[in-house]
Design a binder for these strands. Sequence first.
DNA 1: CCTTAAATGAAAACTGATTCTGTTTATCAC
DNA 2: GTGATAAACAGAATCAGTTTTCATTTAAGG
Lengths: 147, 147
Amino acid sequence: MGQDFYQILRGLRLKATPKRIAMLEILDAERGYLSPEDIWKRMRKQFGRLGLPTVYRNLEGLYGGGVISRVIHPNRQLYYYLCRNEEHHHHFICISCRRVEDVNFCAEKELQDAVTGGIKGKVLSHILQINGLCFTCLQKEGTARAY
Amino acid sequence: MGQDFYQILRGLRLKATPKRIAMLEILDAERGYLSPEDIWKRMRKQFGRLGLPTVYRNLEGLYGGGVISRVIHPNRQLYYYLCRNEEHHHHFICISCRRVEDVNFCAEKELQDAVTGGIKGKVLSHILQINGLCFTCLQKEGTARAY
DNA sequence: CCTTAAATGAAAACTGATTCTGTTTATCAC
DNA sequence: GTGATAAACAGAATCAGTTTTCATTTAAGG
């Protein structure tokens, strides 16, 4: 699995440093999204000394390469998570447990057309992010983590 | 027109202070989105001394009340614009000239269903924002403002 | 008017993110 | 292996946008 990430980084012309590999492993082990600081704290357990700027730099590189995706939390912070299947870009994020779920759109194709079509200008990018409480957190809504 | 905003603020249980009215007038006069600092600069021409925190506080209140909407620019800053028609929530934003255009979705209804339906959890909010270059900026792409 | 809760200005603090500089390290050619 | 080199790194300083605090002012309703 680690070697897997190695190949991905090679493809992006990014050096396969132990820290980058570790970042991808951390994100892979997580079913949800993590803040840069979350990642930093976990990495310090492995590496001891480690700069927070390194985490930001690598997140930027990995995000630019499309290996990881990011989420804008209602609290305005940015969080990151690993992209698992590249053809699927839309997610439902739970703002309580921070889990990221694929959205099984009945009309994913129509959605794409709606987003990119019917516009006179040129679409460069779009953000579609659905925030809510996942089914699990909904059950125990009273005890959900503050957000 | 100013009286119009007065009523809106009353409805939100926000005091109709001259500064809040002015903010709404500034946003109304603009066809595009403005940064908090943009708004602050324009207000200082009217009011002389004026604190930037006041702008932030009022933006928060107006945004909470749904009178204004906001945009996350690719440069990661937040910008605000006036909501003109409440039933229509999706916009195309030009990241060059900062104009906000309504999107005339052929399938706005299907889009809504796709966003809110088919999810086991509870949808609390969503962000759908389409970034690009408007038709005008597309023509003069070489001279478009940096973003 | 007059009272009161809300809004404001000013200064300071916070926070996430970035820049800078010198050092270390992964990669690749040999 | 070994050395060269371009990238990555740590640590400190810095930055910009935003928020807090607190004393003062002001709008709204009686």
